[in-house]
Nucleic acid binder design. Sequence first.
DNA 1: GATTTTATCAATCAAGAGATTTAGATAAGT
DNA 2: ACTTATCTAAATCTCTTGATTGATAAAATC
Lengths: 236, 236
Amino acid sequence: MRDFTKKLRVLLVDDNANHLRGIKELLSIETSYSIVGATRSANLAINLIKKYHPDIVLMDVNMPEKDGLQTIQAISKLGLSTKVIILSGYDDSDLIYRAMKLGAKGYVLKTMASSKLIDAIEAVAEGKVYLPSILATRFFDYFQSSAREEARVSAEENLLSSLTSRENEVLELLTQGINYKSIASQLIISDTTVKTHVNNIFQKLQVNDRTNAVLYALTHGFKVNNNKKIEHLTTV
Amino acid sequence: MRDFTKKLRVLLVDDNANHLRGIKELLSIETSYSIVGATRSANLAINLIKKYHPDIVLMDVNMPEKDGLQTIQAISKLGLSTKVIILSGYDDSDLIYRAMKLGAKGYVLKTMASSKLIDAIEAVAEGKVYLPSILATRFFDYFQSSAREEARVSAEENLLSSLTSRENEVLELLTQGINYKSIASQLIISDTTVKTHVNNIFQKLQVNDRTNAVLYALTHGFKVNNNKKIEHLTTV
DNA sequence: GATTTTATCAATCAAGAGATTTAGATAAGT
DNA sequence: ACTTATCTAAATCTCTTGATTGATAAAATC
């Protein structure tokens, strides 16, 4: 829980002067907040944060000068305990996703009741994340669909599965940027043998050189294979 | 909102028979649910889902046979509208993160009040995501820290920034697995010039061959650069 | 037991890649 | 005007890479 004997120091950033005034009035009703600044400029906001170390920054993401997402990132980089709550007019999945990814701790739509803004400030001040149900759902849909895309690429019928375990070992070393000789000495086989394996890998992956083999491996979820023989496994 | 004239069809999966019985009783009090099955086996669960297409699957993630996360993935792959709610004894960030990534729509701790489970079912049935405040915070901390790691690697003092714009173009083509000749013809310069650029790239990235240059580029956030000359830009 | 797969090694040969040096033409900055 | 950075190009030389063909032995599969 936050220390209620101390006022929460809040900075407002919104390029719209009317919104700025509105929020300022709203917060001034509450006695537990002190507004350390209210600015229309993202760049100025960064300076104010450096100077005053506010607990909370309420920020509009739709600003022209410096885009809101960049500003969040810039704030995160300061390494302060300052927490960012996003104010936005849109419930765009991608925007929510990126804002949260860059370090925002809360996200409030301008269309929401103003009491929600207070809820958000309180929650975030206590170290929680504030994301209204509808936005959380949007966020997760986006999050899961991008994860599915990753999974699809790496799980799809890919040519990597046709590699033998030795070829996998060789490819693993190829993806580390190692040349024939070093691969040979690491696997304790001759370099001509390595060449044979590499050529077989090329055939199977349908590429003509190591760079493309490595690229194929990396973009198709190639992982170090731990193909130990099953009979050597002990089940607990 | 869900159709309250129809009962929600729920499947229970938990390797602990007592938990299974407990949840079953809990849900049977509510008249709006019909339990289509209750099993201790993850593999059996998959078959039951294929057969009965339940609306909701309540699943324990701590099962021996098939691990819970794999099961979520398997369920997602079925492509049904079945939604998974995780029951777990732990509030492990990584577990929450992975479960949500794999397609879970809700996450409830066993230590939580049983009314929360009903809340979760209702929320998820309505298409929302259910993640209690504390778990949401855990999730986002994990999510943001892994995003920070990515950003760190790509933003850290990296050697890519020393490349000229022409070298960037060449590197871009290298990362596509293209050879000297093709790069030359694409950039409409001689291949000896390409070699010069490539050599300069090697020097700057401190590598000795193209595979390592490509690997460096890919692991250090190399992006296609749109370095058009500033005087050609039109500001709107 | 016969067949296939896998892993190993070898010897060529040609092509590509990379190091190095030199150098002219611009462009930009001091 | 002087300096520096960049892009371009060429020549030469060495080394690596990749293609091809062929062969043996062990292991797995049928």
